[in-house]
Design a protein around this nucleic acid. Structure first.
Lengths: 223, 223
DNA sequence: CAAATAGTTTTGACTGGTCAAAAAAACGAG
DNA sequence: CTCGTTTTTTTGACCAGTCAAAACTATTTG
């Protein structure tokens, strides 16, 4: 059984890889992401390498092996199913569940996760629109052509499908303005120079900085 | 924050104290109950003592302080609310939830427990009939005069209110025979010599050894 | 009451995870 | 290409939790 710590390292590698579009992750990136000293990461990477969960090249970085990737996806699956489960059963808001699931994801059995999956009707995505890896350890779907809101032309009509940033404050702001997964919006302005984008959602117009808009993935809706 | 290990030691002390009706618990009892070497217990007891969670007298044993008792009850509260929550939402059977809650009880926030408590309608007992400590760290109720089934006279009518043993196999056997909390039974025979007790539950008659019957707490029902 | 036994504590050692600080390697700018 | 900066690794240390086995204390029993 992989320890809680190992699970967290694997998950961090997986998510950094996804966020940066590159298999290999540096020691420093991991140290920052896990809030741990660089030396600690180095020693853990050797451990992961020895147990066949990651490939580690000194001074180059680390990359998950098949086994490591599968394990990381299992953790992610637990995390996302737990998030959705808490939202559905206890009506928690989506900004509350991330931290909660972070703790619980290491202490629920496969049996329980299977029951939750069944209860929820085998969902494909969690409350943030993040895809839920399948039980056999594969990251599925994601076939939809989602693009960052920041790249959308004025006058395009879009549906929000995913929010990358999980910070509670940010999520609460999105809730207040109605920019939740599933909602549709009409882009009214996208100004490179001003570094902001405005969209009409419901009857209100919302403006976001580009940095924030990059965190929202949308798909265009035929008008 | 108390570590997972500290929480488990405190909980074990509390439960051994309840099971043996004595404040003071010996090193050996704890070692057995936690499946750990006696020496390990000794060193942990010193730690607990230093952090003011338990009073430790060498060669005598250990006893929870007020603070330790409160913390232990909080863990127990989390455990029992989780059990009930899993039974209610996912229709798990009561023999499945104990092990699951054992793992989860250390990784759920107070906020989540409060929401679960609310969702369940502030229940007083878990699926085994064990009382749920209140949010302010008190073991409540238990005022009902529950006695072991093994002490009941023939012809008395009883309602099962609590099952002390949490072993899945035992619980599954109880389910099969209908001896679950809430069920009523008519004692037909209680033989000291034979060491067994028979009761009619539903339309079937069930026989139990005295040792098993001690694990079932019942209250007598006016006929 | 003394000797045997049962229970407890001490000792020394180990693992997993962590840090700070020193040493080494890689990189980038002139 | 070389010097200085950044990044990474090494080193040595620490803490929590654990064990096995030796030393010790308490209890029972002959």
């Amino acid at each position: 059984m992989a320890s809680l710590t190992v699970e967290n390292y694997l998950k961090a590698i997986l998510q950094l890889a996804a966020a940066t579009n590159s298999e290999w992750i540096s020691t420093g990136q991991l140290a920052t992401s896990l809030s741990v000293a660089p030396g600690t990461v180095t020693s853990m990477l050797k451990t992961l390498s020895e147990s066949g969960l990651a490939a580690y090249k000194p001074y180059e970085g680390v990359c998950l092996t098949k086994a490591g990737r599968t394990l990381a996806l299992r953790v992610l699956r637990r995390h996302r199913l737990l998030e959705l489960f808490l939202v559905k059963t206890l009506s928690l808001t989506w900004d509350q569940v991330h931290a909660e699931a972070e703790n619980m994801e290491h202490s629920v059995s496969d049996m329980l996760i299977e029951r939750i999956d069944e209860y929820l009707g085998r969902p494909e995505t969690d409350p943030h629109g993040d895809p839920i890896p399948s039980a056999d350890g594969l990251m599925r779907g994601n076939a939809t052509a989602a693009v960052p809101l920041s790249t959308c032309q004025a006058l395009s009509k879009v549906r929000i499908v995913r929010v990358l940033n999980q910070q509670p404050d940010f999520l609460r702001y999105l809730s207040e303005t109605g920019l939740e997964p599933g909602a549709t919006a009409l882009v009214e302005l996208n100004s490179m120079e001003g570094g902001l984008i405005s969209a009409k959602v419901g009857r209100k117009t919302v403006s976001l900085g580009h940095q924030a808009a990059e965190q929202l993935l949308v798909e265009t809706v035929p008008q």
